[in-house]
């Protein structure tokens, strides 16, 4: 079976003011298989939307190949079989939900009113379909967006931050819809930084940073391997230094030490070392690897991003300095 999306060595550079060029997408190689939900992840400004625009033919790559549904990106035939839900879409606000649907339908040459109504029913907008979009909540607008993206019964859906700015209930509704898309055999390409959503539904992910793919593969494979967190009191600086390796993170404050390490390491040895150093073990917690961790691992290789993005993504501060740095940077 052919790939739904394939890019080879995709490159997009912009001329900078100084005369040089800035790479927004660098040597991007993507393979999205048909029928899967593919998560396209990366921090803001990583090149996600640029990549999607290239795939949709809205902008043009500087070099490289972008194939969508076996056609060149932007091909009209491919466009008949795909749809796109942009990040925070705005619609012609004077139109009602149904009018918007009929407008988009007409772009496919579809005149079937009942079809539009049934799609609105599917996203629970039947009662509101004759109200102008300007009166819709964000969640309702997003659902209209999803409904319009189904107009042509697409084989491939591009969803750019589909849950951005939505309340938790809307999150769940949309997530469920996306899962249904997979059941219907559609390929879904989700670009997001909402990792928790992606983690729950994606089959495969690609993590992009600074225009380059830093990780790509099945979620199960990528998340193989867990972590163990050991917490101990009365720890000294010497013992912390002794335990610190490249693979571990060790933090120490007011005598409390928190050590994180791969579950493939010998936990007992670490506990022993702590005990022998006079420390008191508070807890030993095994943690399954999460997308967040993968994300941080992947993205953190870039030092500049480390403090800022990690804290943003994980929502917890690893080091006090990092927090300051984030505040200073924002």
């Amino acid at each position: 079976m052919s790939l739904a999306i394939e890019t080879i060595n995709l490159q997009k550079t912009y001329k900078s003011r100084g005369g040089g060029s800035i790479g927004v997408v660098n040597n991007l190689d993507l393979q999205v298989e048909r029928g899967e939900i593919f998560g396209f992840l990366g921090p803001n400004g990583a090149g996600k939307t640029t990549t999607i625009k290239i795939l949709l033919g809205i902008i043009y790559p500087t070099s490289g190949v972008a194939k969508v549904l076996d056609k060149d990106a932007g091909d009209l035939e491919a466009h008949k079989k795909l749809s796109y839900l942009p990040e925070k879409p705005y619609y012609y606000e004077h139109m009602t939900g149904l009018e918007i649907m009929r407008f988009y339908a007409s772009l496919f040459g579809i005149k079937d009113r009942a079809h539009c109504e049934s799609l609105l029913e599917r996203v629970n907008l039947t009662n509101d379909m004759n109200r102008p979009i300007s009166q819709y909540s964000k969640g309702m607008q997003q659902r209209v967006g999803l409904a319009q993206s189904l107009l042509n019964d697409p084989e491939l859906l591009f969803l750019d931050e589909p849950t951005g700015g939505l309340d938790p209930i809307a999150h769940i509704e949309i997530r469920d819809l996306i899962l249904k898309f997979r059941e219907e055999g559609r390929t879904v390409f989700i670009s997001s930084h909402e990792l928790s959503d992606v983690e729950r539904i994606c089959d495969r992910v690609a993590i992009i940073n600074k225009g380059e793919i830093v990780a790509q593969g099945r979620l199960d494979d990528l998340l193989a391997g867990g972590r163990i967190e050991v917490t101990a009191d009365n720890a000294s600086e010497e013992i912390a230094a002794k335990l610190r390796t490249d693979d571990r993170t060790v933090s120490l404050g007011h005598g409390r030490l928190i050590l994180e390490m791969s579950d493939s390491e010998d936990t007992g040895a670490v506990i022993d070392a702590l005990r022998s150093g006079g420390s008191e073990i508070v807890s030993v917690i095994p943690r399954k690897k999460r997308l967040e961790d993968l994300f941080i691992e992947s993205v953190a290789s870039d030092n500049q991003l480390k403090g800022r993005k990690m804290s943003k993504m994980t929502g917890e501060s690893t080091e006090p300095e990092a927090t300051n740095e984030e505040e200073a940077g924002s």
């Binding site: 466009h79 942009p86 705005y90 772009l107 319009q148």
Partner: peptide
Amino acid sequence: ERRTIYTILSKPVL
């Protein structure tokens, strides 16, 4: 600016 163009150009519209 409103990004409506993206939804339109991602349809079979030249």
